[in-house]
């Protein structure tokens, strides 16, 4: 079985995403997210070389600039503004959650074996497994965290997973679609950042576990 450069990059990104679950420090999480996204950009560039499509190169550069530099920078600024540096964690301890994420990573291999691949059997198996594993990791991240900002990280990881799945299964989407999605993600991050500040202002914390409690006016 041969493994392409795209798939190696995707699997590395998925493993880096698994490590996000293991730490409660928001800045460490952001750094790992940026590294994971950088590997996804590399995977896109490798896919562009494999299918010789220039559109994918543009997308790779855009992902590297927007998702692995601009968004982490924005959140880093937001963390400094909010003065919240650590998540509290929920349900299970972070090290155990990380081990669960790695188990889900291997589970996603078994799951993707059942999916009929459009590019023929045995093709793009690792890439699809990486994408599904990223979705699992994002869900686990959202489940095991309490702060609103960590929920956004989880959402971003899930978004990465869906993008990777599309990239490895369809040989890349059209340039316009990808640019639209990237714009959507950017706008979504900005809006959620604004919401964070709003929640912080009216509740004096960003703990989503306590948002159900009513507050005296």
């Amino acid at each position: 079985m041969t493994v392409t450069a795209t798939e190696i990059c995707v699997l590395t990104a998925a493993l880096l995403a698994c490590l996000i679950v293991g730490s409660l420090h928001l800045k460490v999480n952001l750094w790992l997210y940026a590294m994971s996204t950088l590997f996804i950009a590399l995977a896109t560039a490798a896919a562009a070389l494999e299918h010789s499509e220039t559109g994918l190169f543009v997308i790779a550069i855009l992902i590297a600039l927007l998702k692995s530099i601009a968004i982490p920078k924005f959140f880093s600024w937001a963390i400094d503004k909010l003065h919240v540096y650590r998540d509290l964690g929920a349900i299970i301890a972070p090290p155990l959650a990380m081990h669960a994420a790695i188990l889900l990573f291997s589970l996603s291999f078994i799951l993707t074996k059942e999916i009929p691949s459009p590019a023929g059997p045995g093709n793009g198996w690792f890439g699809a497994a990486g994408g599904i594993s990223l979705v699992f990791t994002g869900l686990l991240l959202m489940l095991t965290r309490r702060l609103a900002i960590s929920q956004i990280f989880g959402f971003l990881v899930i978004e990465n997973g869906i993008y990777v799945f599309a990239l490895t299964q369809t040989k890349g989407m059209p340039l316009m679609v990808e640019m639209g999605i990237l714009l959507d993600v950017l706008v979504g991050v900005m809006v959620s950042g604004l919401l964070l500040f709003k929640i912080q202002k009216s509740f004096e914390h960003i703990d989503v576990g306590q948002l159900t409690q009513l507050k005296e006016p």
């Binding site: 698994c18 490590l19 293991g22 730490s23 972070p94 090290p95 155990l96 990380m98 081990h99 790695i102 188990l103």
Partner: peptide
């Protein structure tokens, strides 16, 4: 926590 990271490498 540090050892958990090592354990995940072995996993």
């Amino acid at each position: 926590e540090f050892i958990a990271y090592i354990l995940s490498l072995s996993l």
